[in-house]
Design a protein around this nucleic acid. Structure first.
Length: 153
DNA sequence: GCCAACGTTGGC
DNA sequence: GCCAACGTTGGC
C-alpha cells in the first residue's frame, strides 16, 4: 500500500469528471514522461491511494482522493493514430507508455492549495514543492495524513 | 501571457 | 556522448 499524487488540468480532466464517471473508474492515460511512466509501470499497485491535484488554475490544489483499481498496463492511446497521445515509436509488442485505472473516493471539504502546502514545513520535501514538473509523484504516509487532515479541517 | 525549469531531440 | 535548440509544464 503506497501513496501517490497525480496532476491533472481540470479543464482537461478533473476530480468532478472522475466522480461523475459511469462505473466511476477511469484510465489515467496520456502520461508521456519516463519518470512518471516508471512509477505507473513498476510501482503503482491496486489499492494505492492517490491525491488528485489540479494544476494550471488560479489556485492549484489537491482536490481530493482516488484509489488505484488496476495496476500498470500499456496505454493504448499511444497506439492510436487518431489520439493526441499517439506515439509512433510505441507498438503492441513494445509498448513504451503505461497507464493505471483509478476510481473516485472523496472530494476534500477544503481543497489543500499549493500555497498551504508550501506553508507547511512538514511538506517541504514533496516534489510538488521542490518545483518538479513530474506529473506522477510518490507521497509518504506522513504527507498523505497531513494533507488529508488539512483538507478535512 | 510570461518565463523559468527542465525534459527531449538530433547534429556532430 | 555532448550540448544547443527546441518544446512543454505550470506557477504567477
Amino acid at each position: 500500500m503506497a501513496y501517490w499524487l497525480f496532476k491533472t488540468e481540470p479543464s482537461t480532466f478533473s476530480l468532478e469528471d472522475l466522480k461523475n464517471r459511469p462505473g466511476m473508474t477511469e484510465h489515467w492515460d496520456g502520461v508521456r514522461n519516463y519518470q512518471a511512466r516508471n512509477f505507473l509501470r513498476d510501482r503503482i499497485k491496486a489499492g494505492d491511494g492517490v491525491l488528485i491535484y489540479h494544476s494550471s488554475i488560479p489556485e492549484p490544489a489537491v482536490a481530493g482522493i482516488a484509489e488505484v483499481v488496476r495496476e500498470g498496463y500499456p496505454d493504448f492511446t499511444a497506439l492510436d493514430p487518431e489520439s493526441k497521445y499517439f506515439d509512433p515509436k510505441s507498438s503492441p509488442e513494445k509498448p513504451i507508455w503505461y497507464m493505471v485505472d483509478v476510481r473516485y473516493v472523496e472530494t476534500l471539504q477544503r481543497a489543500v492549495t499549493l500555497e498551504r502546502i508550501k506553508g507547511n514545513p512538514l511538506l517541504a520535501e514533496m516534489p510538488l514543492v521542490k518545483r518538479s514538473r513530474l506529473s506522477i509523484q510518490p507521497v509518504t504516509p506522513e504527507e498523505w495524513q497531513i494533507i488529508l487532515s488539512m483538507g478535512r479541517a
